[in-house]
Write a protein that binds this DNA or RNA. Structure first.
Lengths: 290, 290
DNA sequence: TCAAGCATATGCAATAATGCATGCCATGGA
DNA sequence: TCCATGGCATGCATTATTGCATATGCTTGA
């Protein structure tokens, strides 16, 4: 009873995906290959792992057991690749970084540019996402994050502190400056229901006009003159068509961190990027606070 | 950078074996296949894993790291196979048992026979070894052992208590019975340097004549009249051409246990064998003690 | 110094694995 | 009812993997 490890991995993918097609895409093979591998494992173990139903392959209890252990194997493989990557002393190959979408442009653009010029042999992959990637699973080597702490089993370095304030289109700003009684129309992000706390009491009329689930959309709306947005300084300052409005004194915001898995942290490429990044961020600290 | 799990397993085998041929035998493939898989992994990871030397492949530090994690994966796979085997409710297929060489004949013969007759659908593999097999790595499903305790992470059941005594060829026994002054020539096992403790003081002349590293050889020597051997009762009694001699009163010896890995323990085949075995051993308890 | 033994490379033919095209079946909505 | 959709099975051509035979290089001992 000798079973290919790749076949076990295939069982894992099929248990996760539920259908041959989904597992196949996950593994980067044709779905017929998945079907044949499953058949092979079942023959080798002498056990039925899946019920073939009209809407997909339904795992038996045994298949779930197999998947559970295959997931452990996957974790070991992840750790392995992290370890190899972490002891990589070369400044060639690919470095994958991830950062919040909006940090890429004004804040990180110069850093990315400098890195590419300094290390032209390194191919840089940038993954701009709103939901953080899993560094343990090597979805990226390195992440720039806006948060209070690096996650568990991650190494982190705080780059700069941040504050946020209120920004709006110039004509909205004029309006507010001239008439303290004019209503302040807030453009709120995501789960924030209410008017920001700590607003300047000399403007008494606040209301939440629109809520957005996306920061790009908020900036666009603010540029279009739809209202006032509470955004981090670097965003408000670098977005054309926005000016700061005094209705909200600067407030503390989450810091910017560079984080990586502790296994990957010592890698040459990560270290190189880190150096350029920290130097640049500390030199431009003023961008992020009042 | 997507690496086949089977290739990682190949790295592990090569780190363990040191040569292509050894790794190939371990994996059951041709050594050329091993060489090509290694080349493929190195290309995929962009790292040199082995130095090609005249006397084999010497692993780099990176290869050792890979092997370390691949060993973890192997452990997960072992656990997986144990789990699947443990929940196997069928009384077909193969059951692998292991026992000390000399226990197979007189003590377990009838049990094995009965099991085969009761469950003709089960193919029984018997591995008679002097060094215990690794049940965690599934070298056997079930072991009968002579020891004080089952190992860690193993389930065990004590079958019978044992005693040992002195046995010799009939003419040697006659000699001893007639002349208490005659020298008692002991045939010692392995590390035992001295005459057994607790010998009957009415025979004052003891000496160690020969030491053996093998129990079969001791029995043969005793049969041939070369001296007196201290052996468990079941062995002395069932070896033709040996009779008990009174120079050594019965002494306690290690018990006989049936052990299996806790994952495998509940399997139908293991349970079936256990039932037949315990019944038989308890019925024949008298064979093992004075 | 030479030959034997062990180890790794390489070329080629056989085999196994894979992907693609096609067909089948169940489901759900027009 | 019919058709579109999503999912699985099968046959076949293609590709990748493997094993075998052979060649080469290094070490060791007579």
């Amino acid at each position: 009873m000798d079973i290919s490890w790749d076949d076990l991995r295939t069982v894992l993918a099929l248990v996760r995906g539920g259908t041959l097609a989904s597992a196949a895409q996950d593994l980067g093979v044709a779905y017929t290959t998945v079907a044949r591998r499953i058949a092979r494992v079942e023959a080798a173990m002498g056990v039925t792992l899946f019920e073939r139903l009209a809407d997909g392959y339904k795992p038996t209890e045994t298949a779930k057991l197999v998947a559970e252990h295959a997931a452990q194997m996957e974790q070991s493989q992840d750790a392995l690749l992290r370890g190899v990557s972490g002891r990589d002393k070369r400044l060639t190959g690919t470095l994958t970084i991830t950062a919040p979408q909006l940090l890429i442009g004004p804040a990180l653009g110069p850093v990315i540019d400098a890195f590419c010029k300094t290390y032209p042999e390194v191919r840089l992959d940038v993954r701009a996402t709103n939901t953080p990637l899993d560094l343990a699973r090597r979805e990226a080597d390195l992440a720039i994050r806006i948060s209070r702490e690096p996650g568990d089993s991650l190494m982190g370095l705080r780059l700069v502190e941040q504050q946020m304030a209120a920004f709006a289109a110039p004509d909205v700003a004029d309006c507010i400056a001239q008439d303290h009684q004019s209503p302040i129309d807030w453009l709120n992000y995501a789960a924030f229901e209410d008017v920001p706390k700590g607003v300047d009491p000399s403007w008494p009329n606040h209301r939440v006009r629109i809520r957005f689930d996306d920061m790009v959309a908020i900036l666009g709306a603010a540029q279009a003159g739809l209202g006032v947005a509470r955004v981090p300084f670097f965003l408000g300052r670098t977005t054309v068509g926005l000016v700061q409005v005094p209705v909200l004194p600067p407030q503390p915001y989450m810091d910017i961190w560079i984080v990586a898995h502790r296994d990957v942290w010592p890698s040459a490429k990560v270290t190189a990027f880190r150096e350029i990044l920290t130097t640049h961020m500390r030199a431009n600290r003023a961008l992020y606070v009042a």
